[in-house]
Design a protein around this nucleic acid. Structure first.
Length: 714
DNA sequence: CTAGGGTTAG
C-alpha cells in the first residue's frame, strides 16, 4: 500500500519537473528573437541578463552572443567571471570550468575566487582545493574572499592538513584580522574536531560579530562540548549581543536538559525572534533530546506546513526514544500527506524498524526505498544492511552488502558486527581479512571484530586482533576494546586472566570493562570477583539497574540469600528501578508485547493451555526447569510455575499458535534472554520442528533442531 | 564573489 503511494508520488514529481522544463524552453525561444537579442547588448544589460538566466540553454545562447558582440573583443574579464559564476550556479560546472580555463592565464583573483566557489557550491570540494593549490603555484595571492571559500571546502572534507596550510596563508597575507576570514577559520576547525583551536582564534580575534559567537557555539555543539557551548551563549547574551536565529539554532543543539531548553526558549521570546520553521524543527528535536516527547510533539503539531525536515525529525526523535510504532505512524501520516521522503527520512524509519526487529517490516521498508530510487546511497544502504542484521537475516544483509557499489569503513564494520551478533565468528574474521586488503579499519571495526571473537569463543584470534590494533593499524585500544577482551576471557572462564588484564590496563577501566567482568562472574558463579567488579561499578555508575540485578542473582544462586536481599534493598534505597523484561513478537504486521505472566492478550486462555501442553512435551524430551533463573524467595513449586510464564515462552507459544506451520518464529527481548528460557527454547525448536530466532539485548540466538547457534556460549 | 544554521548509516 505505502509502496504504491510512494511510487505514484515519485512519478508525479518527475512529471512536474518535465512540464516545468518544457515551459522554460518555450519561454526562452519566444524571448530570444534575433532583434531582441542584439538590441540589449551593451555591457551592463549583458551582465544583468547573464545573472538573470534561469536555464543552461539560455545562458549558452547568451554566451554565444557575447562572443560575437563587439564588447567582448576587450576580453572583458568581468563579463567572463560573471558567465563562469552563472554557469556554476546553474549547475554546469563543466561549462564554468572550460570557460575559466580558456582565460586562466589571468591573474585576476576575482575570477579565481568565482571558480573556487563554483566547485564548493557544486560540492566538488577536492577540486576547489586543487584549484587553490594551483593558484598558489602560480604565485597568485588569495584575498579575503578566497579564504572563506577554501576553508569551507576544507571543513566539508574534514581536511585539517589542508586547512592548516590555508591558515598559514591567512596569517602571511595579513587577512587574519578580517572577521569573515576569522569566522571561516573557526567553522573549519570546528568541523575538523579542533575546538581548542577555535577557542584560541575566538579569543585572539580583533573583531567579532554575532556570526563569530555563533560559529564557536556551533563548533562546541558539533564536538559534543555542550556545556561550553551553552556557557558561551550565556556570555554572549551577557555582553549584550543580540542573538539571531542561527546562534539560537546552535545553542539549541547544545541543550541536553529541560531547564536549558526552557532557558533558550525564553531568549527567543524575550528577543522577539520569529519562531520560523527551522527554529520550530530545532526546538522539537531539542525537547526530544531532553526526553520530553510531549513537548517535542507539541512543537511538531504546531507547525502548520510541515516540511520534509519536520517530518523526518519527528520520526527520528520517536525512533531515538525507542518508540518505533509512533515513529512509523508519523511516517505513514507523512506519506498520506504526499510528502516525499528522502534518504534521511529512511534512516529514521530504519532505526524504528530496527528496534521492532520485524523481518517483514524490514523487507517492506527496503522495498519502498528501492521504489523511491534511493538505492545505491552509501549511508542508506549501510543502514539497510544493519537493519537486516537486527531483524535476524544475515542472508539478506549480506545480499545488500554484496550489491553495494561503494563501501566504506562503516559498511564493512556493520557487516562484520552483524556476523558477530549472530555468533558467526569465523565469517566475521574472514570478512575482516578481506576488508584489511581494501581499507583501513578504525576503532569501531575493532570493536566489531573483538566482540565477534568474544561471542564465538575465538580467544587466540581475539588476542591476535587486539595485539595488531596499535601495531599494524595505529589504532590505540579504548575502554570498549578492553571491555570486549574482558568479556571474551571471562566468558571462556578465564576469570583470573581477565582480572589481571584489567589490572594491567594502561588506561582507567570504565563501567563497560567492569560490567563485562561482572557478567562473566554471573556465568561462572564467582562471588569474590563479582564483589570486586560491583564495587568498582557502583562507584562509576550507580544508576544502572542491570548491575545490581546481576550481583544479587550471583549471590542468590550461590545460596547467599541475605547478601542477595541486601543488594535488592540497596537498589531500593538508591531509587534504582529494575527494568521489566518484555518480549515482542510481530504477527501479521501487528506487534504484540508480553511481560512475565502476561494475561492481556485476547488469546490468553489458549496461550496458557498450549503452554502447559508444550512444557509437558519438552519435559518428556528431557527438559528440566533451571530454578536458578527464578526469583529466590518463593517455594520450589512456585518457582517452576513462574519460570513457565516468562515473557519469552509466552511470546513463543503465541507465535506457534499464530503463524503458518513450519515457518520461523522471530522474537525480541529487551534484556538478555533468560537461561531457562534458552534451554526450553532449544527443546521447543526440536519438538515443533520450528526455527526460532531470538534477538536479545546483546546478540542473536538461532534455535533449530534442539540446538542454538550460540553453542550455549553466551 | 565572503562567514555561522534545522533531520543524517557502524
Amino acid at each position: 500500500m505505502a509502496r504504491v503511494v510512494v511510487t505514484q508520488m515519485v512519478m508525479q514529481q518527475k512529471l512536474t519537473k518535465f512540464c516545468h522544463l518544457r515551459q522554460q524552453w518555450r519561454l526562452f525561444f519566444s524571448a530570444s528573437s534575433p532583434q531582441q537579442q542584439t538590441e540589449f547588448f551593451d555591457p551592463e544589460t549583458c551582465i544583468s541578463s547573464i545573472k538573470q538566466c534561469q536555464t543552461l540553454q539560455s545562458l549558452k545562447t547568451l554566451h554565444a552572443f557575447t562572443l560575437r558582440s563587439r564588447f567582448y573583443h576587450h576580453h572583458d574579464l568581468f563579463l567572463v567571471t560573471n558567465l563562469v559564476s552563472q554557469y556554476a550556479s546553474l549547475g554546469s560546472i563543466s561549462h564554468a570550468f572550460s570557460l575559466f580555463s580558456s582565460v586562466s592565464d589571468s591573474c585576476d583573483i576575482f575570477l579565481w575566487n568565482v571558480m573556487i566557489r563554483a566547485f564548493v557550491d557544486n560540492r566538488q570540494f577536492d577540486r576547489s582545493l586543487q584549484l587553490y593549490a594551483q593558484m598558489r603555484e602560480l604565485d597568485i595571492n588569495p584575498d579575503n574572499f578566497t579564504f572563506p571559500f577554501v576553508l569551507k571546502a576544507c571543513g566539508y572534507l574534514r581536511d585539517i592538513e589542508f586547512g592548516v596550510k590555508v591558515h598559514k596563508d591567512v596569517v602571511d597575507s595579513g587577512y587574519w584580522s578580517d572577521v569573515f576570514v576569522g569566522n571561516s577559520l573557526i567553522a573549519m576547525y570546528g568541523k575538523c574536531g579542533r575546538v581548542d583551536v577555535c577557542r584560541q582564534l575566538f579569543d585572539e580575534m580583533p573583531e567579532r560579530n554575532v556570526v563569530t559567537w555563533s560559529s564557536l557555539t556551533g563548533a562546541y555543539a558539533q564536538n559534543g562540548c555542550y556545556e561550553e557551548g551553552l556557557l558561551l551563549f550565556k556570555r554572549m547574551m551577557d555582553e549584550g549581543i543580540r542573538p539571531n536565529r542561527v546562534v539560537i539554532l546552535n545553542a539549541m543543539a547544545c541543550v541536553r536538559k529541560v531547564s536549558e531548553a526552557d532557558d533558550v526558549c525564553r531568549v527567543v521570546v524575550d528577543n522577539g525572534l520569529d519562531l520560523d520553521q527551522s527554529l520550530q524543527n530545532a526546538a522539537m528535536v531539542m525537547f526530544a533530546r531532553c526526553g520530553r516527547m510531549d513537548m517535542a510533539r507539541k512543537f511538531f503539531d504546531g507547525i502548520s506546513n510541515k516540511d520534509l525536515v519536520s517530518w523526518t525529525s519527528m520520526i527520528e526523535a520517536y525512533a531515538q526514544a525507542d518508540l518505533p510504532l509512533e515513529a512509523l505512524e508519523v511516517f505513514r501520516q507523512m506519506i498520506l500527506r504526499r510528502v516525499l521522503p528522502d534518504s534521511v527520512t529512511f534512516l529514521g524509519v530504519i532505526r524504528a524498524c530496527s528496534s521492532l526487529a520485524s523481518f517483514q517490516q524490514a523487507r517492506t521498508v527496503h522495498g519502498i526505498i528501492i521504489h523511491c530510487f534511493l538505492g545505491n546511497q552509501l549511508a542508506l544502504d549501510t543502514a539497510v544492511v544493519d537493519l537486516y542484521v537486527k531483524c535476524g537475516s544475515l542472508m539478506y544483509a549480506r545480499k545488500v552488502f554484496d550489491r553495494m557499489k561503494q563501501k566504506n569503513v562503516i559498511s564493512w564494520s556493520t557487516m562484520i558486527s552483524g556476523y558477530g551478533m549472530h555468533g558467526h565468528g569465523r565469517e566475521a574474521l574472514f570478512l575482516f581479512d578481506q576488508m584489511k586488503a581494501l581499507i583501513k579499519p578504525d576503532h569501531i571495526t575493532f570493536v566489531s571484530v573483538l566482540s565477534a571473537c568474544s561471542h564465538a569463543g575465538l580467544i587466540d584470534e581475539g588476542w591476535e586482533c587486539f595485539n595488531s590494533m596499535l601495531r599494524d593499524f595505529g589504532v590505540a585500544p579504548r575502554p570498549e576494546h578492553y571491555a570486549c577482551m574482558v568479556d571474551m576471557l571471562g566468558r571462556a572462564g578465564k576469570l583470573n586472566e581477565a582480572r589481571e588484564f584489567i589490572e594491567r590496563m594502561p588506561i582507567r577501566p570504565d563501567a563497560g570493562v567492569w560490567g563485562s567482568l561482572l557478567g562473566a562472574c554471573r556465568i561462572h558463579s564467582n562471588v569474590e570477583l563479582a564483589e570486586m567488579a560491583a564495587k568498582a561499578l557502583f562507584d562509576l555508575d550507580a544508576e544502572n539497574p542491570g548491575r545490581y540485578v546481576i550481583l544479587s542473582n550471583i549471590y542468590a544462586s550461590s545460596g547467599k540469600r541475605t547478601e542477595a536481599d541486601r543488594i535488592r534493598a540497596l537498589m531500593k534505597r538508591r531509587g534504582v528501578k529494575k527494568i521489566t523484561g518484555h518480549t515482542v513478537i510481530e504477527i501479521k504486521n501487528k506487534v504484540h508485547t508480553f511481560v512475565a505472566g502476561d494475561r492481556s492478550q485476547p488469546q490468553t486462555e489458549l496461550i496458557y493451555s498450549e503452554l502447559a501442553k508444550l512444557m509437558d512435551r519438552i519435559r518428556r524430551e528431557g527438559y528440566t526447569p533451571d530454578l536458578n533463573f527464578a526469583l529466590h524467595d518463593v517455594e520450589e513449586e512456585t518457582k517452576e510455575k513462574m519460570l513457565y510464564v516468562h515473557s519469552e515462552k509466552l511470546a513463543i507459544v503465541f507465535g506457534l499458535l499464530n503463524s503458518g506451520p513450519g515457518s520461523a518464529i522471530r522474537i525480541k527481548k529487551n534484556l538478555r534472554v533468560c537461561g531457562d528460557c534458552h534451554t526450553a527454547t532449544k527443546f521447543i525448536s526440536k519438538v515443533t520442528g520450528r526455527e526460532i530466532i531470538v534477538r536479545d539485548a546483546h546478540r542473536f540466538h538461532h534455535f533449530k533442531d534442539g540446538t542454538c547457534s550460540c553453542g550455549d556460549y553466551w
